[in-house]
Design a protein around this nucleic acid. Structure first.
Lengths: 331, 331
DNA sequence: GTGAAAGCGCTAACAT
DNA sequence: ATGTTAGCGCTTTCAC
């Protein structure tokens, strides 16, 4: 028997038309029936049943083309291998899902060219909004994004007057300084991060100010640039120790840098030197690192919530400033 | 003057039609002109110029709807906060970009319901292929995916006969055992991970076998289930120490668990106990953790390459087994 | 090389 | 609630 009712591409994915043929309804009726609950009426039930049986999966491209919305928000991070950024993203993903959205990420490694390219890509995808966790203080990048006519919000790092959900980094720096001052350190060092990041910049500034205000201004040769990774922390710690072996404590821009510093101290047999990190990643607890905890989940939640509100309310997103907390451990 | 040439939604994004109106060409000619290099001929040049000037951005949804390809591959990880998974993803992202593809991730937290939901979502997006870094040995999940008519490949964890790019975990376990045997430990423990992960399972099996073959079979009470996070490592290490305070070394399923174990040892003043981790994450170097290094970048590269070949060659992806390496440090 | 025409799968008027 | 119609933005025949 020759089954000529079978369309040529019988093995292709089912569409609304497939369901329409099965149920004897029109394609548009099927579309509508799918929008209402399966138990709304007879045809709704029939349509849902057929959809399930056929393994029908709405075509996102077609829906987007028609509705002009994707229900997707894009997030830009500098690197997912920085667990802080990964935590932020996963929480954004969670909040988005709760509100019926999807999230997608792109890593930009703080490279302006990649930042633009990835935003371009997300825009082709027609994402409904953008969360930037990789903003630079100079504003070039964020100013450009703000002119793109897509809702956006920054998180973790701020830039100019753009809406940003951040931690009070200057306070965080002060917290670190306060701890070192309180424990009576006379010669302290600072391992700094990139100045293009408001987080790094703010932490360092807060630290320096608190030290100066306490009458112990930080000498230039007690500061070394470490970047944001462990390797930079190693090099910077080595340099600091070479310049002044008499140092008894260092504050660092983040826990990775602190970890790097710790490895040098261990290697050089200088476990007497105290170290303060920043962020409180899980490895910090494991090595007993004193650190400043940033409220990462809350940052992500607020940023995502604010962006989603902005998308749905058609107005700009709101920023916020949250408070960090000192966590004293062994180091 | 009333400008009636202006369409109603003048402020909306430029489309091929906008460029067509600008250049006096037909939409289809514009589409074709955009496919050839800007310097191919006069109209190509004019069209590219207009596109640039207008800030034209192809609509991914429309292209996909028309061509049935997205040039996007989806990756499923158990958690991006596990830096190993983040590394895998970022490398996949890189390889994909090199070959003109985009990557998207979804975290599933090893929850079967989430795994299916996220795959469904990616399928609606019509991704061209799937990389699973969160496979379970029981096969339920992967078997289902394999029946979905979308190219796929597993990475890091295998399942049945499905194509998988993995590390020789059983060998990795043997490497850890060999090290402990060589350094003369008499009473060693093992902190195990979830059996649903072939990686955890393989490492533990390799370790046990090597110990047994050396005439030092691992007693049941010298093993404790730790999962894959630091917290589990803490609890398991505590349990092990309570059961046998005479233990002198432990092997762990991964570096996070090792870090957790280390924190307990530090707290209990038992820095004499040796620990071996697995993966060699950056924190391992920082704390001087002896560990087994898995070739993560290579795993990701091979998996992504193999998937892309499969997509373009319309045949199944290839698996591979790579070799781990022992990294001896202080612990 | 170009224009005309069709159509990917879906939703949203509109009328009934 | 249902069918009709139109169209989102793009690519790809098909003639020329």
């Amino acid at each position: 028997v020759h089954d000529d009712a079978q369309p040529p591409n019988a093995r292709s994915r089912p569409t609304l038309r497939t369901i329409a043929e099965r149920t004897g309804l029109h394609v548009s009726s099927v579309s509508r029936a799918l929008q209402r609950p399966p138990d709304a009426d007879e045809s709704a039930a029939a349509v849902h049943a057929a959809a399930l049986e056929l393994g029908y999966r709405p075509d996102a491209a077609a829906v987007t083309l028609r509705t002009r919305r994707t229900k997707v928000i894009g997030m830009l991070v500098h690197a997912l291998t920085d667990v802080v950024q990964a935590i932020l993203y996963e929480e954004v993903e969670r909040v988005a899902a709760e509100r019926g959205y999807q999230a997608v990420v792109a890593s930009t490694h703080d490279d302006p060219a990649i930042q633009r390219a990835r935003v371009e890509l997300l825009l082709r995808q027609r994402v409904d909004g953008l969360i930037l966790a990789d903003a630079h203080r100079d504003g070039e990048y964020v100013d450009w994004v703000s002119g793109l006519d897509v809702p956006y919000v920054l998180v973790m790092r701020s830039a100019g007057e753009h809406p940003a959900v951040v931690c009070d980094d200057e306070l965080g720096g002060r917290l670190a300084a306060g701890h070192l001052l309180r424990t009576g350190h006379e010669r302290v060092g600072l391992l700094t991060g990139p100045v293009f990041s408001s987080a790094s910049f703010g932490r360092a500034e807060g630290f320096r100010r608190a030290m100066a205000e306490a009458g112990r201004p930080l000498a230039e040769d007690h500061q070394a640039h470490a970047g944001i990774f462990a390797e930079g922390g190693r090099d910077a710690m080595d340099a600091l120790l070479d310049r002044d072996p008499g140092i008894t404590a260092v504050a660092t821009i983040n826990d990775y840098v602190a970890l790097g510093a710790l490895s040098v101290l261990r290697r050089r047999g200088r476990s007497d030197v105290h170290v303060v990190g920043y962020n409180d990643i899980v490895a910090a607890e494991a090595v007993g690192l004193t650190t400043v905890r940033s409220p990462q989940l809350e940052l992500a939640r607020r940023a995502a919530g604010s962006l989603l509100d902005a998308i749905e309310g058609e107005r700009p997103a709101q920023g916020a400033v949250l408070v960090p907390e000192l966590v004293v451990r062994d180091t």
